[in-house]
Design a protein around this nucleic acid. Structure first.
Lengths: 318, 318
DNA sequence: CTATCTTATGCTCATGGAGAGTATAAATGG
DNA sequence: CCATTTATACTCTCCATGAGCATAAGATAG
């Protein structure tokens, strides 16, 4: 790098060394329940520092997740890199950044480590599950508190802006619910100091139901949920979460679990079959109620043909 | 963090300290030419280490970009975090990661720093500009070299997989060109050792036209291009690149410059007006050839109404 | 055995958006 | 006046999507 000396500002001092944490949002769906892998009594995501021994960020992540949960990591994609917003309190503490990843697997029997367990992601975000209609806490708790937050400023224009933002992100005032805004919703609640994590740091009265997590972990989880909800609409990633063989209804239930909303059954099947994402195994599902369904498997060919390209699921993007 | 002691593996030693670089892909479009801000004689992106003094990653980035280029940073979003693939050669060197960002601005007169300049992004990726049809180097140079690369392995199945991958990402064999695959294309060329950056490190004969950059910077640029090309289709970000007032044709030319492909004029206007993204200023464009066009400005309201939601541009996503 | 419940699966219909093309208007320069 | 260039208004077709109706194929309660 002979041109380094052309940028003398770039001198790196020991002071500028930092620490990087790797954090995993590891998702599985077991009969219609979306789950994430947690440690520390369901209060934290699997994570650990990026160490010298790690050959790459992903390798480091895999090492930590397997060590802490006993679960191997399959599909992985990077989510976001956060820097602690100087929350540590100690001004002399070194910078600490978190590099977060989304992982998709299947829940497997008896593979949980000592302190590792699967937890429903809706325990952390109860307002995100709209499969049985808008959850009660939205109208009963969240909307009023956000209204109060909006009114708590003097300027009327700002009041209006705040409330509009709340209404858009939470689908209030007759607006449509948009499941992809999970992260924006969390950040709005955080901003409004309705979240224990925030209260913990800066005071205020906590507020909205939903389990808190260590540090930034719930924000990272929200990032993962939002990303996954967006991604299932145009990439065949749901199949990473399915067993080898499944019925179309099971597939639909998984999609619904992730999206937190229901889809039209016939249209769902039409779309899946049109795109030739699956193929029949020939077998039928046993031990079911009602008319037995055909079993399908993911058609591996699509990965080669379209890994790069696209796929659609009937969750409107408008 | 009382529960830290429950995870003894998490001990952080001095050895695990790392350095983080902040890298910016700063984009502007000046009369139909997409440009990026570069330093070091157009061989590197603005960048510098994340330092103790920086209050956040974005603040650090802004500091570096303004110091190196004199250009203030407007719209910014995070791109990706790369870890050097251990390319430094020195096994004792500390880990170094790059946190990259995409920034959008307007090119302003006389604001270039000593070593900072705007460069056309197609200088670095000549195969990405399809506004005048598929560029000649695709059929003349890239396709044959990729075919050779595919054939250079013994196993026929692998040959086929390689070639299919090349055909899909580059739109060969009669397949459709997909402008969003800019990153995959760069990575494929890299893998095939057709890129100077790769040759520089591991030997092989370089290959494909297109200016190289320092370290990972061209990969980061490809990431930025791909992200921006995807994003203009569903978020009103093009306007960050436009002057205050513009004609619809200028807007269209900017979109085309970024996407590297042409769009249907009438449909473009229909979509822009339908969505009420712009409003007339009342004035007309002067100094033009042909019938004078109305001047428009971006309707700021949409940011409040739909910042979170969406917008469409007529670049099909299929 | 039959009514009922549950799920599977096939089909139709209306709507709206997107791609593509035609036609006309308004400027400029010869 | 004509050719050229850009602006702007419409139209037409195709198809994806959302929604609903109808029927099939099992299990189970009575």
């Amino acid at each position: 790098m002979s041109n380094l000396n052309k940028r003398p500002q770039k001198t790196v001092t020991a002071l500028d060394a930092i620490t990087a944490d790797l954090v995993a949002v590891l998702v599985a769906v077991t009969d219609g329940h979306p789950k994430i892998m947690t440690i520390d009594h369901a209060a934290a995501l699997p994570s650990g520092p990026f160490q010298f021994a790690h050959r790459s960020l992903q390798m480091g992540l895999r090492a930590w997740v397997e060590a802490q949960t006993g679960h191997p990591l399959g599909y992985v994609e990077q989510l976001y890199t956060f820097a602690d917003r100087g929350r540590s309190g100690d001004p002399d503490a070194p910078h600490r950044i978190s590099i977060s990843y989304l992982g998709l697997t299947r829940e497997e029997e008896g593979r949980e480590g000592a302190d590792a367990q699967w937890s429903s992601w809706y325990d952390y975000f109860p307002w995100e599950d709209h499969r049985d209609g808008p959850p009660a806490i939205l109208a009963k708790i969240i909307a009023p508190k956000l209204k109060a937050w909006a009114r708590s400023v003097d300027e009327p224009a700002l009041q209006k802006t705040r409330w509009r933002r709340a209404a858009i992100t939470f689908g209030l005032d007759g607006r449509e619910w948009n499941e992809e805004l999970a992260l924006q919703r969390y950040e709005l609640l955080y901003e409004a100091a309705l979240i224990p994590e925030r209260v913990r740091e800066q005071g205020g009265e906590a507020a909205v139901p939903g389990r808190a997590m260590t540090g930034d972990h719930r924000r990272i989880l929200a990032t993962g949920i939002a990303r996954l909800r967006a991604k299932i609409k145009y990439r065949p990633v749901v199949f990473e979460l399915m067993p080898d063989e499944f019925t179309l209804l099971q597939l639909q239930r998984s999609v619904e679990a992730l999206a937190g909303r229901l889809v039209h059954k016939q249209n769902f099947r039409r779309l899946i079959e049109q795109q030739e994402l699956v193929e029949e195994t020939g077998a039928m599902a046993t031990d079911t109620i009602g008319r037995p369904a055909k079993l399908f498997r993911f058609r591996q060919g699509v990965l080669a043909e379209r890994a790069v390209v696209g796929t659609k699921l009937p969750l409107s993007r408008s």
